[in-house]
């Protein structure tokens, strides 16, 4: 059952709906059905109303206030059913003012996004390895220098078709990599989650 159907069944009082109602807090039937109508059709190329990109400017209880890079303002409701990623799967208390995020959920009638998933500070960089230091890679990303830190026990490498491993020794300066990582806000640094390299 998808999230929207779960929400719908929640307001109709089904057994599965009770789970949905708990996960998303007290959503009124009007909220859910209004959201259904607003979200019914999204054309290719259009902005997705169920997605938010931006920086967190405030946090109160379980609501994040976010300013998108185009200047638009958003409220995002986080529940105990929201999955949160910040380098690893994590909890709401790890989310801070100043973090960047991508959020996906369901846009409610009052404009709030009820979040299914938050990816905090996540970046996906296709970059050139300029040099390799002790515990970090110096990357060229569209002409900008990015320092990518290796964190023992968290950072992993994937070489061609291999499963992810902690061994970074096969990375080479002068090669291209793709890095999933977590940005350190207001710096040119990230921590590597997974680095993909062809060897």
């Amino acid at each position: 059952m998808d999230r929207r159907k779960l929400l719908t069944s929640a307001v109709l009082g089904g057994a599965a709906g009770l789970v949905g109602a708990t996960a998303l807090g007290s959503l009124s039937p009007e909220d859910v059905f209004a959201a259904e109508g607003a979200n019914a059709k999204i054309n290719p190329g259009d902005p997705d109303p169920n997605f938010v990109e931006g920086r967190i400017t405030g946090i109160t209880d379980t609501v994040l206030f976010v300013t998108s890079s185009d200047g638009s303002l958003h409220s995002i409701r986080v529940t105990n059913g929201t999955s949160i990623w910040k380098l690893n799967p994590t909890t709401f208390d790890e989310v801070k003012v100043g973090d960047g995020l991508y959020a996906r959920g369901l846009r409610l009638a009052d404009g709030t996004l009820a979040a299914d998933s938050l990816w905090v500070n996540i970046v996906n960089l296709n970059a050139h390895v300029d040099s390799i230091g002790r515990g970090s890679l110096n990357l060229d990303h569209h002409g900008q220098r990015v320092v990518a830190h290796v964190e023992n026990g968290r950072s992993a490498a994937v070489y061609n078709n291999t499963p992810a491993v902690s061994d970074m020794s096969m990375l080479e300066a002068g090669k291209h990599v793709k890095v999933i990582g977590a940005w350190h806000p207001d710096t040119n640094e990230i921590t590597i989650s997974t680095v993909y390299a062809a060897v």
């Binding site: 999204i42 054309n43 290719p44 190329g45 259009d46 902005p47 997705d48 997605f51 938010v52 990109e53 931006g54 920086r55 998108s68 890079s69 185009d70 960047g100 991508y102 500070n121 970046v123 960089l125 990303h141 569209h142 002409g143 900008q144 990015v146 940005w183 806000p185 040119n188 990230i190």
Partner: peptide, 24 residues
């Protein structure tokens, strides 16, 4: 498109319309 962090420098793509928040 407009974005935060290292993505802030990548621009709107070859078609001039690209945005992270759009279905593209």
């Amino acid at each position: 498109g407009n974005s935060w962090g290292p993505c802030g420098t990548v621009g709107k793509g070859a078609c001039g319309t690209c945005n992270s928040g759009s279905r593209q």
